[in-house]
Design a protein around this nucleic acid. Structure first.
Lengths: 254, 254
DNA sequence: CAACAAGCTGCGGGTTTCCGCAAGACGGCG
DNA sequence: CGCCGTCTTGCGGAAACCCGCAGCTTGTTG
């Protein structure tokens, strides 16, 4: 049995290496990658079936890497080992895990014991192991209790990127008004009205900008989510008008 | 000589402990703290003069902790040891360092050798040691080459928090128009106009929101900067009108 | 089928943002 | 002193945002 470790930090990497050796005597080779890019490459070269992956790496983050790996071989077992339980990460992961795949999500703050248990459960027993703390978020985010719908999350990302209502409408195939409806419902859930028009017109917030700030503070968004979204939107923008030639064709509107 | 280590991650903590022992034979005691809060407390109790501090900790981040420590004893020597060289961190640090204090900023990716050298330089020789990569940012941020003025940075933070123009004007003691001037100048520097109305009038960006997004992507802002700013603005809001009585929330505006 | 909930859409209008234009205010420099 | 550059402020208007109201399509349930 072979295990691939993908992790930025050399300290954590060697710690993982030891943990794998200790927890899995049946493992004969351990390979290491120091970022997502080489992680993908090694996974492909070695046809890795067992991977421990850090989220949040400089070159190419864990979610990106996992996505392409799973795309090529959906039965790969991946244990995500992360510092944070931001909702943005949790959502990002559960968005890309293939049906029936065995995977895990363990926090770096977990004990040695817990980590080893997770390694065995996933790699040997093919069971999913999700850290309790993470699990809580997942429930919230999938169920609708106090959580966010996918459509709400979508629009949150869109305004975080700085798109206008009109642009969002076009991107998502909605009318302008529908976009604004979704925005209202987002503002509602984020409780943006709190100090906005409450006391007086003095200390007012710009709802749109405030929503993004609150989402960040609540860790619904984080850097890597924004980064991914930015890449997607750029792609969309580029594909929007393939022919730079016929731009004069449609001039009149309204 | 005593050294205080303030660091979240147990692995990194013990690594630091070893590094200190190896680099500083004259050091007889090493104390450890696992977050900013107990870091402050230990620093006070032991009157620590030599501290190694992680930025980015859960309970109370390194900048906060360093600020209160320096406030009590400005001659304390602090070596910041961080994963990132985000401009937001660099700016945050150089904002709080007292005149003439010896401090350092070393990245976690640096070699053992570099770390040990930095430890000796700062704690023994009282010299400032700034990582080359970080240094670059600092130049940019203090000098005006392609960097941001304090006033621009201020307004960036304000819109990131979601304040309206009017609120910003009141907060900073400016007229509405001046605020908007600064915004324009910010938009200019952030190059927000790039794909906005450039090629076609369809996919437009909301400048205000876009500026925040770009700033995040360029790491001019990050979570901890936002968190600090949020605390400040809340404080300001509270102090604004002394009657916290009618705190009842209403969503209907008459 | 009726009744109801949930979502999309258009309309209208109040507020905010974005910004060109122009009139001061302040400081440096020949 | 006049000239110039930078910063501020007011005015006015086009565009964007925020949102109540009402009509329309779905899908569900009894």
């Amino acid at each position: 049995m072979k295990v691939l470790i993908v992790e930025d930090d050399p300290l954590h990497r060697s710690y993982l290496h030891e943990a794998v050796n200790a927890a899995l005597p049946e493992c004969d080779t351990v390979i290491e990658a120091e970022n997502g890019t080489v992680g993908e490459k090694l996974a492909r070269d070695h046809k890795s079936a067992h991977i421990v992956m850090d989220l949040q790496m400089a070159s190419r983050n864990g979610i990106e890497a996992a996505r392409t790996i799973w795309k090529e071989r959906p039965e790969t077992r991946i244990l995500f080992w992360s510092n944070y339980s931001d909702e943005a990460y949790v959502r990002g992961v559960s968005r890309i895990v293939p049906d029936g795949a065995a995977y895990g999500y363990v926090l770096k703050s977990a004990s040695d014991e817990r980590l080893k248990l997770a390694l065995r459960s996933i790699f040997i027993e093919s069971q999913c192991v999700i850290d309790r703390e993470v699990r809580g978020l997942q429930q919230k985010s999938l169920g609708q209790t106090n959580g966010f719908t996918d459509s709400e999350y979508e629009i949150l990302v869109d305004i975080a990127l700085g798109l206008t209502d009109r642009a969002i409408a076009k991107r998502r195939g909605l009318s302008l008004r529908s976009v604004q409806n979704r925005l209202q419902q987002l503002y509602d859930k984020l409780d943006v009205y709190q100090a906005a028009g409450d006391d007086h017109e003095d200390g007012r917030f710009n709802l749109r900008a405030r929503a993004v700030a609150v989402a960040f503070l609540r860790k619904l968004l984080n850097y890597s989510a924004l980064e991914r979204a930015e890449a997607e939107v750029q792609e969309w923008l580029d594909g929007l008008h393939e022919s730079p030639r016929d731009r004069h064709r449609r001039r009149v509107r309204t």
